[in-house]
Design a binder for these strands. Structure first.
Lengths: 215, 215
DNA sequence: ATCGTAACTGAACAACTGTTAAGGAGCTCG
DNA sequence: CGAGCTCCTTAACAGTTGTTCAGTTACGAT
């Protein structure tokens, strides 16, 4: 007969392989990865603590060793996500230099790549804001507005610079963010185009939306 | 002491006023309207049958007089929505005539207006596809692809016609749909712009995405 | 060897879930 | 009148929910 410890170790290993490809501290990170997988498929309310635990290969109670509540798991995922996006966007903006065209290409590249690489996490992030309780909801929305303002500034700057000719820079900025965010909901890794190619195309589409004249 | 009938009538009247502004058959339509309101706020799984019934001013069991299940309520809402969108899009396309520019303006106008007028319903429609069970999910996705194909055809047609110059007509078509669908998630009736004005602007943005040259 | 602690377990909790059963009020029609 | 129908009720059902609790195991430090 197999000992409880052997059973348990086996279960954990299996859990790790599914979610985490065999390494890592297997605690918080495994649970977060499992949560992202299963929540992005069925939504926050459509996912039970037992679903998460089963996917992670642990018991339901194990989740409460690492997080105070199911809600806190969501908060952690959403906050890590938006924070990384903000950081990467800021970096891209610094690296782009002073020209609005370069800036727009830079932040669109980051935005698209981020939503392609962390497809499930970002889908959670965009669809489950409503599941956040206050004050986390308010804080998260503030960070989203901050991210939006990056795009607003680039569009308005380019308009003043005279390189963007759209009559509605704010609407164009919002449209660009929405369209780049949207890639997470249709992208399939087995599709015909590489992530790099998709990012390149969206830079072009964003420039069109900004009203860059050809010539 | 108030009779049960009086209590009940009062409750129903209150329910109607909240949801339906006092008229209508108060049965199926009231329940659907209540479902759209509360489900668009908390999502399908975040909404209980008791939540819906309470908003509609009836008992939880009343829902099962009109629908076989909670899931069927969602199916009804989503199907009515996509069917009306398809119909309106088809009409707009016929009314637009042969030129791709007019066609694009027509279907963008319909798409934006539809998502502004039925804001809550369309938000449900875009976010809760995952809550649909088979075979309804498959059927609904087929209708969504049909709607997408309207835009694909217009973009490809305009490219062949030589009036649209985007290098990526299919990506542009998807981006246009996504950006028009997105209005439902940020629009507030008390905002600075009328629905007509927003629709007009999005026609402009769509033409930019399509790569219509100025001049 | 023993202590401490991090990581986890199975079993239980009350609350809530979708759904059903049985019945009553109000209406129309013969 | 009363049969039949629509629309709705209260009360209950079994299953699931998030969460807690008391205990167990693995393991590095003393």
């Amino acid at each position: 007969m197999m000992s409880a410890a052997e059973q348990e170790a086996g279960r954990r290993r299996r859990g790790r392989r599914t979610v985490n490809s065999e390494l890592g501290p297997a605690g918080v990170d495994t649970l977060l990865a499992a949560s992202i997988e299963v929540m992005s498929e069925h939504g926050y309310h459509g996912t039970s603590v037992r679903d998460i635990a089963h996917r992670a290969g642990v018991s339901p109670a194990a989740l409460y060793h690492h997080f105070p509540s199911k809600h806190d798991v969501l908060v952690t995922i959403m906050d890590r996500g938006i924070e990384e996006l903000l950081e990467r966007t800021g970096e891209a903006l610094s690296a782009a230099g002073p020209r609005a065209i370069d800036q727009l290409c830079g932040i669109v590249d980051v935005h698209v790549r981020f939503h392609l690489e962390d497809q499930h996490g970002t889908m959670l992030g965009t669809s489950e804001v409503r599941a956040l309780a206050e004050p986390f909801r308010g804080e998260h929305l503030a960070k989203r507005r901050k991210q939006q303002r990056f795009f607003d500034r680039v569009l308005l700057g380019g308009t003043r610079e005279g390189v963007f000719h759209t009559a509605y820079p704010r609407d164009a900025a919002r449209a660009i963010v929405v369209m780049c965010t949207g890639v997470a909901s249709w992208y399939r890794p087995e599709g015909p185009h590489s992530r790099t190619e998709i990012a390149r195309r969206y830079q072009e589409l964003a420039l069109d939306l900004a009203g860059r004249r050809i010539g």
